[in-house]
Simulated scan of single mutants.
Amino acid sequence: MDDDLADLFLRAAKRMRHQQSERLAPFGLTPSQARALRVIVGADGPLRMVELADRLGVVPRSVTTLVDALEASGLVTRTPDPANRRSLLVQPTGEGRAVRERLHGIRREAAREVLAPLSAEQRETLRELLAVIDGREHSSPR
């Protein structure tokens, strides 16, 4: 039974990611790049690369690859950190902010499509169960 549950969970997550990837393709972004851009734009100011890695829950080397792609697309810039010249700060460009605004609903659209067969009550139950798995007692709707 648990194997079946794990398979169903993974297939649903994979389907959601696939839906998101299809919607991001016209922007030339992967889901990981879109997530990094969302975090960078949502920060209160420039982020150190290590802070970005921490917020994304990935190793710093992975962030370098993500930021390289975002920078090549003109969506972010990197500058030396004046407080620590060995660190780099990453911040969005005007174009990065504009793209992030256009991407705002893409993740929700993908989730909405995958979760469409569920009733509102079932979606709320799923939200509560996933919040327990995630370590939170209750997750408010986003």
Rank of each mutant, 00 (worst) to 15 (best):
residue 2 D to Q: 15
residue 4 D to N: 12
residue 8 L to K: 09
residue 9 F to T: 13
residue 9 F to D: 07
residue 11 R to W: 08
residue 12 A to T: 08
residue 18 H to C: 12
residue 18 H to Q: 10
residue 20 Q to K: 07
residue 21 S to G: 07
residue 23 R to G: 04
residue 24 L to P: 02
residue 27 F to H: 13
residue 28 G to M: 12
residue 31 P to E: 12
residue 32 S to A: 15
residue 37 L to D: 07
residue 38 R to D: 07
residue 38 R to K: 03
residue 41 V to F: 13
residue 41 V to G: 11
residue 41 V to N: 07
residue 44 D to L: 00
residue 45 G to V: 09
residue 50 V to S: 12
residue 50 V to K: 09
residue 50 V to H: 11
residue 52 L to T: 01
residue 54 D to Q: 00
residue 54 D to I: 00
residue 54 D to P: 02
residue 57 G to K: 00
residue 60 P to R: 02
residue 60 P to V: 08
residue 62 S to K: 01
residue 64 T to L: 13
residue 64 T to W: 07
residue 65 T to N: 07
residue 67 V to M: 10
residue 68 D to K: 08
residue 70 L to A: 04
residue 71 E to W: 02
residue 73 S to E: 01
residue 76 V to F: 04
residue 76 V to E: 03
residue 77 T to W: 09
residue 78 R to S: 06
residue 81 D to A: 06
residue 87 S to H: 13
residue 90 V to C: 07
residue 90 V to F: 11
residue 90 V to Q: 10
residue 93 T to H: 11
residue 94 G to Q: 15
residue 99 V to D: 10
residue 102 R to C: 06
residue 104 H to R: 15
residue 104 H to Y: 14
residue 106 I to G: 08
residue 107 R to D: 15
residue 111 A to Q: 10
residue 111 A to V: 09
residue 115 L to V: 00
residue 115 L to G: 01
residue 116 A to R: 04
residue 118 L to P: 00
residue 120 A to R: 12
residue 121 E to I: 10
residue 122 Q to I: 00
residue 134 D to R: 11
residue 135 G to K: 14
residue 139 S to N: 13
